[in-house]
Design a protein around this nucleic acid. Structure first.
Lengths: 307, 307
DNA sequence: CGGGCGGATAAGCGAAGGGTTAACCCGGGC
DNA sequence: GCCCGGGTTAACCCTTCGCTTATCCGCCCG
């Protein structure tokens, strides 16, 4: 029985699927499946079995879940407590939706780690909106940037950024193909909500690895892309793309920062949250990339459990 | 960071010494030292350092201790919860002083496991009286049989047996050599308390691997042994040994059963405690070995953390 | 009935974990 | 000055973890 195994179990239970847990942990799916198998064998109980609508807990699994969950949290606490005591670099793990991650997460983290007096190790991961509450509760992330999650118990969400979502393309066509980034596949995202409101069928959606790629495809006349107005503005000014009106755009969207309730929130998460309210942060969100040399753009560090 | 490592750390911190922790865990002493080293490296903190009068915690170690302690307890809880849910054999870990372990622990456990309707796996380990509170708190043992420990916070101790301690030998001599079992080396034991009251110097004490061996040596004229009157009675009747009067013997002693306070006590520990109050149990303590075929005398299973 | 989705299993591999014995320090006491 | 108790380190062993890719299996659905 290791903490890794317990962490995998908790995530599977909370997310209802081995696959989703594997994605949240950024490992392959058999890795989670095996961790679960090892725990099952060790405890002599299936713990969680396939049922209609996801994995459902057995009697033993139901008893284990709260205990395992607390052990996972305590594991994270233990690391934090000792590191804080000796003034070691604290770590801040940010999980963001694909849209946020692509443009603003890295510059924001970079600016934050340089402005804070303490030494801080930042890391950002990409997650679907629906996974964020679980990641926060399991201390796999300290801050979530994305949709509003304040309805979840124990979490507080506050808006940190407001923007306009527009459709861009070359020429208006009656039944366009929509070119979106991976968040189009995340039911909780603004992008997919917008596509739902437009009643766009699956077959007229193409998912690209990131927004930049989707925009490029749109510029080639492949269809319409969804973009944040201020981010795509330069390309519109250069004439590569035009803003195309639709029944539901321009739409105002809000990004929220979500953390655990203050009493259970790590101090660093609170500091980052406050940072997001500063003029500097706002500036970075409006014009990401400005002032940050490319070399400082670290590749995203994925969310990890302790090693 | 594994549960094993955390367990080792907690025990070292609580017992104040690597050596004692190793003995309590029934592993070699470098094993504990290494577990500690691994944890130290992982967390980047010494955690606990040699100081005057045992190991003392660093700032980081002090913060880690309560967290680690709870994780260890939760680890034990997790196993128990799942096992109980599926009706698997529960395990009862009894720690006893050497005197108790030698004669009565095995028969008692054996009788208990056969009388209880549930399936129970029993195990007994030998520990010094001073280690017992820590073992109970860390869930390394469920019940401690030995001296009174009720002064410890969180523990309840109640007497389960009363007996007379006598000195036995062949002929009275002025400055006898005392032949004792390992509990003579445990400062908390009745035996060593008795030797202290007699002001016996170290050089006139010989420690034997068990009481039976000490009695045999005494019968050979090697000196005086300390024995429970009712246990040594057969040999006295056969004339192999005689009871020798001393200023402090015969002494009445009490064995106590100690568990965690009721609200934190595993159900099985409560059941065993109640069993100790039955006539059957009393009979076994008075005439151990009676009625239990030798084949049922399992070798003691040492106390282990989860595997 | 064939596909496809999602979980389980197999095989394999590097890196820890966790144990041992033996040897090495290091401070305190006779 | 030397020994000794107690912690650490070294060297070595085997097992388990934890991850991968590839494959299999059970089930639902068109």
């Amino acid at each position: 029985m290791t903490l890794t195994q317990l962490g995998a179990f908790v995530l599977v239970a909370r997310l209802g699927s081995v696959t989703r847990a594997a994605r949240a942990l950024n490992v392959s799916e058999p890795a989670v499946s095996q961790a679960l198998a090892a725990l099952r064998q060790h405890l002599g109980d299936r713990l969680i079995v396939r049922g209609p609508g996801g994995m459902t807990l057995t009697e033993g699994g139901a008893r284990l879940l709260p205990i395992a969950s607390q052990m996972v949290v305590l594991g994270a606490d233990a690391e934090g407590a000792v590191r804080a005591a000796r003034g070691a670099p604290e770590s801040l793990r940010v999980v963001a939706t694909a849209e946020v991650a692509e443009f603003v997460a890295a510059p924001l983290l970079d600016a934050f780690t340089r402005r804070t007096p303490r030494e801080v190790e930042g890391g950002a991961g990409v997650g679907a909106g629906s996974e964020m509450p679980v990641l926060l509760h399991n201390r796999l992330a300290d801050v979530a940037l994305g949709p509003y999650l304040g309805d979840e118990p124990g979490l507080v969400s506050e808006p940190v950024f407001r923007a306009r979502l527009v459709a861009v393309g070359t020429v208006p066509v009656p039944r366009p193909v929509w070119l979106v980034d991976p968040s189009g596949a995340d039911p909780g995202s603004e992008t997919s909500a917008l596509l739902r409101r437009l009643r766009v069928p699956e077959e007229r959606i193409r998912v690209y690895p990131n927004q930049t790629a989707a925009w490029a495809a749109a510029a080639d006349g492949g269809g319409l892309a969804i973009a944040l107005a201020h981010l795509v503005a330069p390309r519109v000014q250069r004439g590569e793309l035009r803003v195309v009106g639709t029944p539901v755009t321009p739409a105002e969207i809000r990004w929220h920062a979500t953390t655990l309730a203050p009493e259970r929130r790590p101090p660093l998460a609170g500091a980052f949250r406050r940072f997001l309210g500063t003029a500097d942060a706002l500036h970075l969100m409006r014009t990401p990339g400005s002032g940050v040399p490319p070399s400082r753009f670290r590749p995203p560090v994925y969310v990890t459990i302790w090693s």
